[in-house]
Structure formats: C-alpha cells, structure tokens
Write a protein that binds this DNA or RNA. Sequence first.
DNA 1: TCAAAAGTGTTGAGCGTACACCCATGC
DNA 2: GCATGGGTGTACGCTCAACACTTTTGA
Lengths: 229, 229
Amino acid sequence: MSFRYAFARPALTVDCVVFGLGQDGLKVLLIRRGRAPFRGKWALPGGFVETDESLEDAARRELREETGLHRIFLEQLYTFGRPKRDPRERVVTVAYYALVNLGEHRIRASTDARAAAWFSVSHLPGLAFDHAEILRRALARLTGKVRCEPIGFELLPRQFTLSQLQQLYEKILERPLDKRNFRRKILGMGLLVPLDGVEQDVAHRPARLYRFARRRYANLQKKGFNFEI
Amino acid sequence: MSFRYAFARPALTVDCVVFGLGQDGLKVLLIRRGRAPFRGKWALPGGFVETDESLEDAARRELREETGLHRIFLEQLYTFGRPKRDPRERVVTVAYYALVNLGEHRIRASTDARAAAWFSVSHLPGLAFDHAEILRRALARLTGKVRCEPIGFELLPRQFTLSQLQQLYEKILERPLDKRNFRRKILGMGLLVPLDGVEQDVAHRPARLYRFARRRYANLQKKGFNFEI
DNA sequence: TCAAAAGTGTTGAGCGTACACCCATGC
DNA sequence: GCATGGGTGTACGCTCAACACTTTTGA
C-alpha cells in the first residue's frame, strides 16, 4: 500500500435505516432534506464521518442529532459506493439499520428544522440518492434475520404480550401464524420470562406480560443454540 | 448534509479474504507486505479505492493486480473503521470475501515481488493491521452462509463428485456427515446435474461427476426455495 | 349477557437421523 | 484377490402444521 491517492479520497458518510413497528405494519424513519441536492426530498438520516470516531459512533451521533434517538439496537448493514450515487462528487456511505420501539422512543425533529417522520414501508415517498436501494437491502436483512435471531424484541416494549409478539412476526414475515403453534414454540425455547403483571385497560381478558431473557439467550448462543421462528 | 469535512476525509481501501479448499481444509490467501507499516508481515490483499470505480471493482482490481485472480465469486463482507486501525492515519476499509477453486486458479505473485501464499485457517501467521479480525468475520460469514446458500460450489471444480462435495461441507462445518443422508438430501434438491463422465485415474470404483445447476437455483430462489444442508 | 381476545391439546405427515452391506475398479 | 472408496434402503423418533373450544374480562 502507498498513499498516492491521498488527494482523491471519496467522502465518507453513514446512513441509518430506522425501523419501528406501528399498528399497521413496519415503518421507517425519514428526514426531509433542507438543502440541495434533493432539497425537499425524503432521505435516510445520516451524515459525514468525523476523523476520530468509529463508523458506529458516527451513525449513533447522526441519529441522535437528527432524530433524538439514542441507546437503540444498531447494526452495520452494507457499504454503498457506486461512483455516481451522489450527483456532486464521489461519496461512499456505510449504511446501518436500527430497531426501535415506537412507544418508548419519541422522535425529536432536528435542531435545524428538518422534518422527521415515520412512513409505512409499503407506502414510501420517492427517496433522495440511492436511499431506496439501501432501504430495500435493510428490509431484506430484517426479514431474513428475524427468522433466526431474536432481534424482533427490539421493536417491542420491554414488557409485551405473546399476541403482540406474534403480530410482530406476522407483520414482518407478512404471513399469518398459528396461535397455538407459535406460543408453544416460543415458550419452549425458554427465552421468555413470565412477569406478574397483565395488560391494562383492555375490554377483554387481559394477557400475561413477558420479557425477553436477553442474558439467557447470550449464554445459549455461546453453546450453539439457534433461534428459529 | 454539508461538505464541511472535505479536508478531513478518511482514506478508503478494500481488502479481500480469499478462501480456497485444500486437502487439509480451508485456506486463505495472504500477501507479504513489502513496505512499512508491518513490513514483512502477512496481510490480506487489498489497496486504495480509486475515484471512479465502484467498491467491488476496486476489490476485483486489487485481487487481479496482487494475485492474478479474476472472475471469481466475490461478496462484500463488512466495513472496518476503528480510528486507530492503521497506525499512520485514519483508514476505513471495505472488506470482501472471495471463494476460489484451488485447482482451476493459479496464483501469480504480484509484479512488485511481494509473495502471495495460501495458509490453513487453523495455522495462521500474525497478520498486519486488524486483518485477523477481518478474517475471523469472513470465516464466520462463510460457515454461516454455506448452511443456507449453495456457495460451497464456488470452492470446487466445475465438475465434481458427491464425495468431494461432502468433504467440502465436512471441512467447512468441521463435523462428519452421513454419506447416505447427505447424498439423498443434496440430490433431492434437484440442483445437481449428473454428467456422463466419471472420475479418472483412481484406484477404486470411479465416482460419477456432477455439476451445479446454477440457473435452476436462481429460478427456484425467486420462488422462495431455500437451500439447507 | 355479549363481545373480544386469552389461553389450551391432540393427531397425522413429513423430515432428519442412525445404521451396514454389496459393487466396481486398479494394482 | 485385495484394498479402496462408490453407491444404495429402511425404520424410528421428532418436529411441524392443522385444527376448535373454553375462559376471563369489561362494557
């Protein structure tokens, strides 16, 4: 290696695909751009990587600055570097995806008055840059990953009912699941801890609340256990 | 977004983890560094991304320049950007992994006389930079991916016997497989085409040759088929 | 008492796994 | 004829999928 390319470096950004789960299915958090190019268009939250921060730190910082979100599940997705993906000049972006629980995390529009809003993944507006492609890949990763890793819990409140969990999987996998089989399977893994409380303020029999046994999963995982829906 | 960071851009490189399958298990292609830092240490083949090439093009170009390999399976792995991963200055690297068939691809040492050599993944020398970490992640991806996608075929010659295929899986998964069950399962998928030829020059009954039905797999995949060993 | 969702078992089919012997070939 | 790997079938257990009714609560 040499540093002969020191003066032709691509710019480096991070972008985040933030998923949340609403009543009517999976949602994505977008930001309306305040400047050219693509001024007024919706885009993924993101921005430039600073010199002394890791890529993940950059993603978390941008998320916090632009949406107020912090302390959430975040994982690297893919790096996009097609030469003309930014019309101005060469920009390579490291994309991350994040999962949040809509109830427990409030979105705060960023300081410079750009709007932030949730969109159903099935009714998306036109997006800036190649963000539609990034989003497609994030969605594919999410639907692939929920089948074999218990990341779906990140989209639910800390305490949840089995029906909520089942609906989550039904929305992400886009197919109905059998209630009895689902409960048997998920409880059989021994990764849900039943709590004392039950649902409140519902006009029917209230359901038992559970939480995900995060640490127990970490231990099982080391021993080669694998989660499968 | 703004371009206020235009003068503090990290350098951007690509690195490739090239896997091959030898008699004694899985191997990785390494290059001995000719310059500081880490001069004389073994490292992954790679180098700087040029202004007008995509990331994958950069990876393929570097592989060709440094090892002579071309037209091989290559897929993006992960992007590594810890601030101090290069002792000189900030360098972010987009890692790729590649699969080659040792018999059909000869390695050619690069023009500037750096050595290139295959190492068993179980007996690796100390590596430059964070390349050991990159390699660990590539190995994890490979072992995870062969279970559910037919990428193992990339490590075999175009024509192969069922025993070769079974041995491949046994080496990658590091566990023995039952011959009859393996054959039943793999043939049952209908993705192997039996050829007319048989093995040559063996001191026992020669085995039938097969090839992987790449296009048939692509079609099945669209319909939601999934490959599982 | 009605509506609405919670909670609960059984059965059959298909799949994965375990297991042992004869076959074709080169030397 | 012997050594070497190639090639083949069956039986059992387990997991998955299909399926309907009773219970609890609030209104």
